[in-house]
Design a protein around this nucleic acid. Structure first.
Length: 432
DNA sequence: TCTGGGGTCCTAGGACCC
DNA sequence: TCTGGGGTCCTAGGACCC
């Protein structure tokens, strides 16, 4: 067995990342878009969240406000889509289920990427090529594969595979030294974990490239920056700092927030919207068999237009852990009421739950204000509601406090939404 | 009036990711 | 007119205890 410098078993990780995932999903059922720039917009058609490679060349990348790019979009006949999460989630499941065939375990890192443990393969680069071809052929989604002895190296290898056509979508980097000629010149912010702030502080110390970062002595890195930066340095040397997580861990916090297409300034409307958010997070909580004991809510006014935008948040520790929607709604409304002033035009609100525990601990709380029998009734009711909504559609059955927002969820703007080709029979692709 | 030091737990906020 | 949403991890600092 091969060992790393700490005497641990040597690992090989493959990072499989779908290219321009949302835009690629839209292209799967629209072959006429081949070669054309495609962008996908965020909720409310607010900003660009994904762009095909043709769109990226035009400067249409993640985070660009849509309204600022309208002239570019018209000029270059860019195909514009509102986000269609049902479609993306469905194609993501297909990709992930195929990937499971090529590693001893998988860590689904996000909707469009996954780490595979390929340590057992003797020919890892070949496995990478097979993955690259199979996913493209079976789903229509193009992917790049990066292989490395740490997650950071696999990420970087993936970047190299995407940027250099000569790699045909697959690149393997066992250590920084081995791949030096492909990565030393790359800007420091290409590293996984180096964002805007770290880039700025590294540049202040004359570190502009990955090469100059790796040339620094370890003691200097440890002294000047925090643990996360030092870990990146070690991972590039081939020392594993990030572990591999093969069973999706339960969420430690669950939240829902939305920007409203039109400002909200009445208590009744705000109450309904926030109650709807609670219902959403409570379903996610029950789906992972957990309950929560801490609940927060926030509201904001328009941060782009108002001179002194208002931001208010409040949180509460519940007397006992719960996963019950009505209990959570009852807890959130007084907090929301305290944040509400009718002089404000609210543009965004959200709820967040933390202090998440397994739902068995609910029964163990001492001095609970509910009897065991009442708790059992509550969970039977919740399970029934969840089942009905799962079968007949979200918001088929709602609590009275969320009734209107369930029917008209803040009038979300979605002017260019594609069909739910894979998840709704009414919207299936037709060949005529 | 003078007033130590170490440990733990909790929370808010920053930074990052996709 | 039009600027997203859902997460994780880390650190600093306050409160409290002995």
């Amino acid at each position: 067995m091969k060992k790393d410098i700490l005497g641990r078993e040597q690992k090989k990780y493959a990072l499989v990342d779908c290219n321009s995932f949302y835009a690629s999903c839209e292209k799967v059922f629209r072959p006429d878009l081949e070669g054309r720039p495609v962008v996908v917009l965020s909720n409310n058609d607010g900003c660009v969240v994904a762009g095909s490679k043709e769109a990226k060349k035009l400067g249409l990348t993640m985070g660009v406000p849509f309204f600022k790019m309208k002239s570019t979009i018209q000029k270059h006949q860019v195909a514009v889509f509102s986000s269609n999460y049902a479609l993306y989630a469905s194609l993501s499941r297909r990709v992930m289920s195929l990937l499971r065939n090529y590693g001893s375990s998988i860590e689904v890192y996000s909707i469009d990427e996954a780490f595979l443990d390929v340590s057992k393969s003797a020919q890892t680069t070949e496995v990478g090529s097979i993955i690259h071809n199979v996913i493209q052929q079976s789903t229509g989604i193009p992917v790049a594969v990066g292989i490395g002895s740490t997650k950071t190296l696999a990420k970087l290898a993936n970047h190299v595979a995407k940027k250099n056509d000569s790699f045909s979508g697959v690149c393997e980097l066992s250590s920084y030294k081995e791949g030096q000629k492909y990565i030393a010149h790359l800007p420091i912010d290409e590293l996984w974990g180096i964002g805007r702030q770290h880039t700025k502080s590294l540049q202040e110390h004359n570190v502009y490239t990955i090469g100059s970062f790796m040339a620094l002595p370890e003691s200097y890195i440890k002294k000047k920056w925090h643990t996360p930066v030092w870990r990146i340095y070690k991972e590039l040397q081939g020392v594993r700092c990030h572990t591999f997580i093969d069973n999706a861990p339960k969420k430690k916090g669950i939240g829902t927030a939305r920007t409203f297409a039109k400002p909200v300034n009445t208590w009744s409307k705000l109450k309904e919207i926030v109650s709807g958010f609670i219902a959403t997070v409570a379903v996610k909580l029950r789906n992972q068999n957990s309950c929560t004991q801490r609940l927060s809510v926030f509201v904001t006014t328009d941060k782009y237009r108002e001179q002194n935008p208002y931001f208010g948040s409040k949180s509460i520790c519940l007397p006992m852990p719960t996963d019950d929607t009505s209990t959570l709604i009852k807890a959130v409304l007084p907090l929301l009421k305290a944040l509400f002033h009718d002089k404000h035009n609210y543009r965004k609100a959200g709820v967040y739950i933390t202090d998440i525990k397994p739902n068995t601990s609910r029964q163990l709380a001492i001095g609970t204000p509910c009897s065991t029998e009442a708790l059992e009734k509550q969970s039977t009711l919740s399970a029934t509601i969840d089942k009905i909504n799962q079968k007949l559609g979200k918001n088929t059955l709602v609590f009275a406090t969320q009734r209107l927002s369930a029917k008209h969820p803040f009038d979300m703007k979605q002017t260019n939404k594609s069909q739910r080709f894979t998840t709704s029979l009414d919207e299936i692709a037709c060949v005529s």
